[in-house]
C-alpha cells in the first residue's frame, strides 16, 4: 500500500469531505430533535388507526423510540446520499475516472503495483466513509445529549453501531471500487454501483411497508444494520458477519481482476 497515494486521495476529497461531515453532523443533531418533538404525535396518530402502522416506520426505523429514530435517520435518503457520495460516487469513479482521464497510466508508470494502488485508494475511501458515518452518529449522540435523552440509549453499544454501520457502507464502497476497476469509463461503474445501492434500499423499504414482502428485507444489506436494536441492547451479531462478508467479496474480486486486466490506451 502507498501511504502517499492514500493521503493524496484523501487530499483530493478533503473539501467535499468537510462539507459532507458538516452536513452529517447537522442531520445527526436534528434526529433527536424530531424525535423529541414529534414522537408522541406520531404514536397517537399510529394508535388512532388513521394510517396503517407500517407507514409510521421507514425501513427498520421509527419515530416511536430514540433508537428507532436513529435507525430512521441513518436510513433516510439524506443520510444515504451523504454516505453515498463517497461509498458510491467517489469509489465508482476512483479508478475508472483516472482511467478515462488518462491519469491512471501516469500513476501506474511509477513503481506501484496495481494491488498497492487498489488497496491505497480503498483505504482512503473507507477512511472517508468512516469519517462521514462517525460524523452523523456523533451528531445524533450530541443531539440526544442536548435534548437530555441519552438515558434512552445504551451508549456502551456505540462502538458496535459504528462497526456495523461502517461494515454496511464498506460493502457499498468495495462494490463501487470493484466496479471502478472493471470498467474503462466511470459511467457504467457509477450505474452499476448505484443500481446495487438502489436495489438494496428498495428491498428494505418494500419489506417494511408491505407486510407480504417482509421477506425481501432479509436480502437487503440495509436490513442488517439496525442501530435501534443495538442501542436498545439487542445487537444481532450475524448482521456483522453479513455486512463484512458483503464488503470482502468485492475486494477479493477486485484483487483477482484488476492486476490481470489489460489497460489499453485511453481513447
Amino acid at each position: 500500500m502507498s501511504g502517499r497515494l492514500l493521503l493524496q486521495t484523501l487530499r483530493w476529497q478533503r473539501v467535499r469531505l468537510a462539507i459532507v461531515v458538516l452536513a452529517g453532523i447537522g442531520w445527526g443533531l436534528l434526529i433527536p430533535v424530531f424525535y423529541n418533538a414529534f414522537s408522541d404525535v406520531m404514536r397517537d396518530l399510529a394508535n388512532s388507526g388513521a394510517f396503517p402502522r407500517e407507514l409510521m416506520s421507514f425501513g427498520s426505523g421509527s419515530l416511536f423510540t430514540l433508537p428507532g429514530a436513529i435507525t430512521l435517520g441513518l436510513q433516510h435518503p439524506l443520510a444515504i446520499g451523504m454516505l453515498g457520495i463517497f461509498a458510491v460516487g467517489a469509489s465508482a469513479t476512483a479508478v475508472a475516472g483516472e482511467r478515462a482521464r488518462g491519469t491512471l497510466e501516469v500513476l501506474l508508470a511509477r513503481p506501484i503495483s496495481r494491488l498497492a494502488l487498489y488497496l491505497s485508494i480503498l483505504a482512503a475511501l473507507l477512511v472517508a466513509v468512516l469519517i462521514v458515518f462517525a460524523a452523523i452518529i456523533g451528531g445524533m449522540i450530541g443531539g440526544s445529549a442536548i435534548q437530555g435523552l441519552t438515558a434512552e440509549l445504551d451508549l456502551a453499544q456505540l462502538p458496535l453501531v459504528i462497526l456495523n454501520g461502517f461494515g454496511l457502507w464498506a460493502a457499498f464502497t468495495t462494490f463501487g471500487l470493484a466496479a471502478s476497476v472493471t470498467f474503462d469509463r466511470p459511467g457504467p461503474a457509477i450505474g452499476v454501483s448505484l443500481a446495487y445501492l438502489a436495489v438494496n434500499y428498495f428491498l428494505e423499504i418494500l419489506g417494511s411497508l408491505w407486510i407480504d414482502a417482509a421477506w425481501a428485507q432479509d436480502y437487503s444489506l440495509f436490513h442488517h444494520f439496525n442501530p435501534g436494536a443495538i442501542l436498545s441492547g439487542e445487537p444481532v451479531l450475524v448482521d456483522l458477519v453479513i455486512v463484512f462478508g458483503a464488503a470482502i467479496v468485492p475486494v477479493v474480486y477486485a484483487l483477482v481482476v484488476f492486476p490481470r486486466r489489460d489497460l489499453a490506451a485511453p481513447a
Binding site: L5, Q8, E105, L107, R110, P111, A265
Partner: peptide
C-alpha cells in the same frame, strides 16, 4: 515514461504534479 497525449491532474499546479509523481517514483 511519457505517454502519448499525456493527461495530468488539472486541479494541481505544475509543481504539485511533478512533486507528486516524483514522490511516487521514490
Amino acid at each position: 515514461y511519457l505517454p502519448g497525449g499525456i493527461a495530468l491532474y488539472d486541479s494541481l499546479t505544475g509543481e504539485e504534479v511533478l512533486d507528486y509523481l516524483v514522490d511516487m517514483q521514490g
